[in-house]
Design a protein around this nucleic acid. Sequence first.
DNA 1: ACAAAAGTGTTTCACATACACCCATGC
DNA 2: GCATGGGTGTATGTGAAACACTTTTGT
Lengths: 248, 248
Amino acid sequence: MTQDDLNNQLKWLFENAMSGISVDCVAFAYQEERLKVLCLRYRNTDIWSLPGGLVFKHESLHQSAFRTLQERTGLDSIYLKQFQTFGEVERANIKEVMSRLVPPFAMEYFPNRSISVGYYALVNHREVIFTQDILTDLTAWHDIEELPAMIFDHVQIINTAVKSLKAQFDHLPLSYHLLPKKFTIGELQKLHEEVLGEKLERSNFQKKILSTAILERIDERKIGGAYKSPYLYRFKREKYEAWVNQVF
Amino acid sequence: MTQDDLNNQLKWLFENAMSGISVDCVAFAYQEERLKVLCLRYRNTDIWSLPGGLVFKHESLHQSAFRTLQERTGLDSIYLKQFQTFGEVERANIKEVMSRLVPPFAMEYFPNRSISVGYYALVNHREVIFTQDILTDLTAWHDIEELPAMIFDHVQIINTAVKSLKAQFDHLPLSYHLLPKKFTIGELQKLHEEVLGEKLERSNFQKKILSTAILERIDERKIGGAYKSPYLYRFKREKYEAWVNQVF
DNA sequence: ACAAAAGTGTTTCACATACACCCATGC
DNA sequence: GCATGGGTGTATGTGAAACACTTTTGT
């Protein structure tokens, strides 16, 4: 990428994007029994960032968040939820981080003040195909407990997204988006424990989940694992959608 | 107000405010046993609007919302909560409303596209002193069930704010901001019923509220009313603050 | 005295929690 | 066989809901 390429891109953005309004996406996945967040690394640096960017003039906020994530992951169906908008005048470590960026990422390419609308997303990491762009050279899932050095206030944005996800996870069957099509109750419970940050009583969890009738048992058992083969379950799509739509 | 005055003001805003980012405040009060919203009427029209405006470059979103409401109400302590950001490309009835506006409010003074960060506020209407500005000639409380014709998508913003308030009212003692210092349990119950939109069982409500120990009974009874004089209560300030702060 | 509201107590039920038990499977 | 996790059943406790009873005060 040359300096000219960058300038052309900036010029295009200036004409087609709103000034000072960006969307940042906290994309969650559940991998190896941990809750992970999608992070991007700026080329030639060890500074990471959330996927996001300026809002185009002709698109809604939701569309902007969707476009951003679709470009990165190739997914065409993504659960998205706006959770908070961030607008402090001085956004955290901006100066300290900027000083560590090497050219051509200089301070002048970032606006003086920016408002960021935060969306969190739930994606199935098994279906994701990463794509890079000219500013980044690496896309990776990071454990929410072990985040790298991040630009602006992105760590705070992630933490807020986690709180918001926790608050909603109780009421909504959001695990639908994070698990494979078929799964065992035990796997579902592990996910709930990871998100809520606490152990749950096994038999009670089973009863509570099954009593909602949102799962259906498949005539098939998980094989290969040690000990008793558990049944596999899947979400009933109609039930799931009715549940999600009814809630604020 | 002359055309020059308006132009000067617009010039000042252009220099000191962010472009395309505004804050809209849904200020709730509880008056005559109804939940009310603060609305402004544009001068020379019958079009109403929420208090709000462009975000200044040097202020945070929260400060912007606070400033907006303080200018209107004279209050220096306001409970504010960001609830959602609105960013559709076409914001509802903009064209239809614009066509009804008389000069000097012409289309050219409104940006092509605007993102609006929604805050709801809880205020004690007894302490409010209304102030007008050059664009508006009337400030009034409107029943949330009987809203006037409003600009942009402000009706939708209000409805979303109401939903958000409902969702939080269960968990938080927000009635603190809407009632006078001293009140009876019956008055508190009426408020809860109005916000939640359903009747509550009297004796259970009393027990539930008192069991939280957030109220203290004053050695004083309400006088003048018919029938048995009820005790007066007030919020314990420490309890209230501990409760609000602990929650997301 | 009576009506209506305020305060208190009691019963019932739903549900979450805790825990006990048996089953199935791989080692 | 046995360790381990999976599936089901049972006892207990807590809190919400429904309702009964008593007290108070203006008319």
